[in-house]
Design a protein around this nucleic acid. Structure first.
Lengths: 211, 211, 211, 211
DNA sequence: AATGAATGAGTATTCATTCAT
DNA sequence: CATGAATGAATACTCATTCAT
């Protein structure tokens, strides 16, 4: 036999992508076999190679796809460079949390499977990641320069904020006592506190408090 | 050949542990083959099985070992429950950052390979993890109750802080412009800001700022 | 390489079966490695798993296949329940000897590798075996009831006859002084003697003779 | 450590033998690992090699041991060459059944694991086996010559009798409706019938019966 | 557009055996 | 007399991938 009647290339490709996301999120990229993926999609494994030349290419497609969509989504949601830094920071935090909580599979994979990428793809995804980090760093730099924020180090603060925000996917389970909106509000508040400055430098505080 | 002259069980076991840490950190647990591990240790793969009955058992030993050492190290470093919450929070943050920056392999594995654990081991490690999280939560709760901290939600804040602190291992490279002491200071400051309250509730700020 | 030009699934499967029969008969099931089997068939070991999911499944297929063919062959050769018991017994003995001498490999395996079967398969094969034993027991029972045979115990006699008849494969080598037809005649005669009764009960004879 | 206090060579050797008999009977020789055997005995596997230089040697020891004991036991039980052939046949049958039913493990192994023997050991065991078969053949020959038995072929008859008698171990389970004495009586009767002649040649009977 | 048949390299694990102690 | 540490070869089985159809 050959072509299954009624089969359609685009549809199959989309099914492969979504099945792969589930399987990788559940078992990890290395642990997902092309056979299992094919079974989930409902084709023979040989058919997968019509759409993605290698397993690596599939992972790369998933990850760059995710990063590109993330950047595109931000471009749409963007409040503009002209707004006040705190407004922009708040918007960024809300956007990030909301976007990530809605796509736990993609996010998990984007962070966990970086090491499974071949050097070439790793570099490409790294670039997209840097672009995204740049958005936050620009906001922090602007706020720092105009005096709205007081930060020890823009880079460190940005990395800390992103780790914190992205970390939500590792513990949040919908259906518990907290709504997604609650989480979004709490995390956004924490991010803003981290940037705001109206309190004495904390590196001295403990000693004071210990007095 | 049989027993190598001068070979010693305890030593071999330690070498297996440390080689496994490197290899898993670099390639992931699934991607580390027992053959490659044996080669790194300098024995035949069959020899590994004298020390760890399965690959799973090796991972579990590594992870529970790490968590137990972490808890033991804290118990030693502990400033006592009687100190002021902010002092204790500061101490916790510094301890966590310092401990984790010194053991990037263990930390990476402890967070990345949870899913590779079998259910039984997963549960065991989960318990140890909760114990550690409990330390921070207790500090936050105490600070909240005595009014030193003002927090929206102890659990959310604790999770956010831990993700942020632990995240340092994903980007920090010694030898850049930042010293480990700088990073420790910055992160500790951020943690304290997240707990301190002497500025208006940020959930309202953005709207104000957007005016 | 991939698919060999002109390769055909059914053919490969048949070749696997027949090579497996030879190898198991020669070395035993446990001692036959899938590698050696693959080499005998002329494929890579991985190819075997397209046809039989496990080594166990291959053994089970061989053994149930043998038993089913044996039962089918009898159903075809059957002289009918209406014939005289002695006629039927003679027919059974001839059939059994002839069938077994023609398939020494299958027979040897069917008796020797029972213990290598997993419990599930063991039970299935056991059922088929009982069905076959039932054929002989029915003949003996009928002959006993109509007085043609005089038997101490139908079950014991049936077991004894089957062990005797099947045992031929352990020593008979074609090309010696005895033809297969001779063996068939001799064994059939022995079976009939075991069932016939026109001589004094032998359990008393030795004592008499010993007098 | 070295010698376990109180350990004794002869005792250990005997324990190895008896544990090996159980394990081989249960799982087969190939499936019994020296490790499992050592565990059953309560020593390290290396210790086994003090008593048997290889796994093969252990099997050979078990099998030649069994055959030698069998022959020795017959020599003791022997009723003498002067008795009447039927008496001697009866005695042989009773002896064989009794001896074999009492040692199912040894018997099972002696018949099932012949193929696991290396050529050298196979030949040695084969010789002992032939000696034992010779006992029966002599009885049959004597009975044939003096006219007490009428046999088509001494060799075929002997083989048939031995297969039949030995087969008892494959189905008899003590504790059912049949006592060991019953089985002995039934089998002995069958053997005697096979040798006795006072009924028309059975090879012609079926045709008659089919009339 | 997809299948059915196959490959070759790899997996974790187990084996009988050895030898320094 | 026996152990503890190790070996080297083997085991059943799985993998990503290929290619004729």
């Amino acid at each position: 036999m050959a072509r299954t009647t009624g089969s359609n290339g685009e549809e199959t490709k989309a099914r492969i992508r979504s099945c792969a996301l589930s399987l990788i999120a559940d078992h990890g990229f290395e642990a997902m076999s092309m056979r299992r993926l094919a079974a989930a999609v409902g084709v023979q494994s040989a058919a997968l190679y019509r759409y993605f030349p290698t397993k690596q290419a599939l992972l790369a497609a998933l990850m760059t796809g995710h990063m590109n969509q993330l950047l595109a989504a931000w471009a749409e949601a963007i409040p503009g460079d002209s707004a006040a830094p705190l407004t922009r920071l708040d918007a960024f935090a809300r956007f990030h949390i909301r976007y990530h909580m809605a796509r736990p599979h993609e996010v998990f994979i984007a962070y966990m499977e970086l090491r499974s990428l071949s050097p070439v793809h790793y570099k490409a995804v790294g670039k997209l990641r840097s672009t995204y980090e740049g958005i936050l760093k620009d906001i922090l730099t602007d706020g720092s320069q105009c005096g709205d924020f007081q930060l020890d180090d823009v880079h460190v603060t940005a990395m800390a904020m992103l780790a914190m925000l992205t970390g939500v996917t590792t513990w949040y389970q919908p259906g518990g006592g907290l709504s997604a909106a609650d989480v979004e509000a709490h995390y956004t508040a924490l991010v803003c506190r981290m940037a705001m400055t109206d309190f004495t430098d904390t590196t001295e505080l403990p000693q004071q408090a210990a007095r």
